[in-house]
Amino acid sequence: MALLGTIVNGLLIIIGSIIGLFFTKIPERFKETVMHGIGLAVILIGLQMAFSTNQIIIVLLSLLTGAIIGELIRLEEGLNQVGKWLGSKFTTKNDKFSVSQGFITATLIFCIGAMGIIGALDSGIRGDHEVLITKGILDGFTGLVLTTTLGFGVIFSVVPVILYQGSIALFATQIDRLVPANILNELIVEVTAVGGLLIVAIGLNMLKITNIRIGNLLPSIITVVVIYYIYQLF
């Protein structure tokens, strides 16, 4: 079953987020310090991913084109609206921003990364769900901690996680017929590098060092595929 790993990943996020709801009353100073710790760890993870690139020009062009597309379609604004709409259904008016922030932050953390891509590919190509189950355990703990600070919105991130990883897994059941293994492996490296820089941006925002519109950079995850394909042609 190609989607087993994705489903387990989603369930573990839900469980972790629900458990986190019982710890929202801890003192604010604990939450702040814990979030700083997570922010630092997120930056480290992102840097490790970003340094994997073999073609820095591909990464640069992907971020530039992705940023232009994201700003043109105002992607982050749309994500915020989704978060606020969810907030209006489940929280009071004063909590809407928290739900929006929790939804966007958790979605970016859970969706962007090597484990999600490689794990979904393993599920689809080889029927091996170990990577996604391991990712699910990590996501569950991360969701627990994020929920204590960012609130109920974190749990909604399970929807884009399942759609994103599930789509990759289903596509991967046919991908070996379309893309040679060596090209696929190299592409994953560049996608991971771009995703790593977005992860670094998340960490910087969590530490309140910057206020990067990460949502508007998300199209770079798609443009890197196009740019890599053009690069291979020449």
Rank of each mutant, 00 (worst) to 15 (best):
G5C: 10
T6Q: 00
I7S: 02
V8K: 00
N9W: 00
N9Y: 04
L11M: 13
L12D: 03
L12R: 01
I13W: 12
I14T: 11
G16P: 05
I19P: 12
I19D: 13
F22I: 02
R29S: 15
R29I: 15
R29P: 14
F30P: 06
F30L: 01
F30D: 07
K31C: 09
T33I: 12
V34L: 12
M35V: 15
G37H: 03
G37P: 02
I38A: 03
L40M: 07
L40T: 15
A41G: 09
V42K: 01
I43P: 03
I43N: 08
G46K: 08
L47F: 15
F51C: 00
S52G: 08
S52L: 15
N54S: 10
N54Q: 15
N54Y: 11
I58L: 14
I58N: 12
V59D: 04
L63Q: 02
L64I: 09
A67N: 11
E71G: 14
L75W: 14
E77I: 15
E77D: 14
E77N: 10
G78H: 03
N80P: 05
Q81E: 06
Q81I: 13
G83P: 00
K84Y: 12
S88A: 09
F90G: 08
T91H: 11
K93G: 14
N94L: 09
N94H: 07
K96G: 11
V99D: 07
G102V: 00
F103D: 00
I104D: 15
T105P: 03
T107I: 10
F110E: 02
F110D: 08
C111K: 15
C111H: 11
C111Y: 06
A114L: 15
I117C: 10
G119A: 01
D128K: 10
H129N: 00
E130D: 14
E130Q: 14
E130V: 12
V131D: 07
L132V: 07
I137V: 04
T142P: 10
T142V: 15
T142L: 12
G143K: 08
G143H: 07
L144S: 10
T147N: 11
T147V: 06
T148Y: 14
T148V: 06
L150Q: 03
F152E: 04
G153P: 05
G153W: 00
V154D: 05
V159I: 13
G166T: 08
A169V: 04
F171V: 14
F171W: 10
A172W: 08
T173F: 05
D176F: 14
R177W: 11
L178M: 11
V179T: 07
V179S: 05
P180E: 14
N185S: 09
N185A: 14
N185Y: 15
E186G: 06
V189S: 01
V194F: 00
G196N: 11
G196C: 07
L197E: 05
L198F: 06
A201H: 01
G203Q: 01
L204N: 04
N205F: 01
I209Y: 07
R213S: 04
I214W: 02
N216G: 09
N216W: 09
L217V: 06
P219G: 07
P219V: 02
I221W: 13
I221F: 05
I221L: 06
I222L: 15
T223S: 07
T223C: 00
V225M: 03
I227G: 03
Y228M: 04
I230W: 10
L233I: 15
